[in-house]
Structure formats: structure tokens, C-alpha cells
Amino acid sequence: MFRESLGNWLYAQRSKSGGWFWALIAFLGLLVLANVFVHPHHPHFGLDAYPGFWAVFGFGGAVIMVAVLKKIVAPLLARPEDCYDRDQ
């Protein structure tokens, strides 16, 4: 019973994804703001003393990784799924 209602509720959030997106944006903005005031005592990488470094790192890292890997690397490595199912 609980499971069903939980499942339905979660499923229903698909249609509300816009709302969730803006909630995320707001949260991220708060974090960047907080970063202005709260920063590490001894920066390890030099750059990470700057507010927003990790934000850029996270976003940029994710975007670049997906782009490079999916667009360039994956086609190079692709093989049929059953390539090892037969003896050559």
C-alpha cells in the first residue's frame, strides 16, 4: 500500500520536473553565495580559494566529460553487445 502510493507519487514528479529544476537552481545559487563567505583555510590547489571554483569544476567537469566520452570516445570503443558470446 505504502509502496504503491510512494511509487505513484514519485512517478508523478516526472510531470513536475520543471518545478524541481528551479528548486535546484535556487539551491545552487544559495551555495555559491555561501561560498563567498565560507572558504577553505589552506587552499590545496591555489585556485580553490576563489568562490565558485568548485561550482565551475562540477558543472564544467560533467559537461566536458559527457561530451568527450559520448561523442568521441564511445564510437571508437563500440562493439556489438554479443561480441564475446561466440568463439572466434
Binding site: 535546484l24 569544476f57 562540477g58 558543472f59 567537469g61 560533467a62
Partner: peptide
């Protein structure tokens, strides 16, 4: 921050 902005990137 890392997690949130990764989410944004995704």
C-alpha cells in the same frame, strides 16, 4: 557544490 553543479551539468 560539486554534487549540485554536476547535477546541473547532467
Amino acid at each position: 557544490m560539486i554534487l549540485g553543479f554536476t547535477g546541473l551539468g547532467f
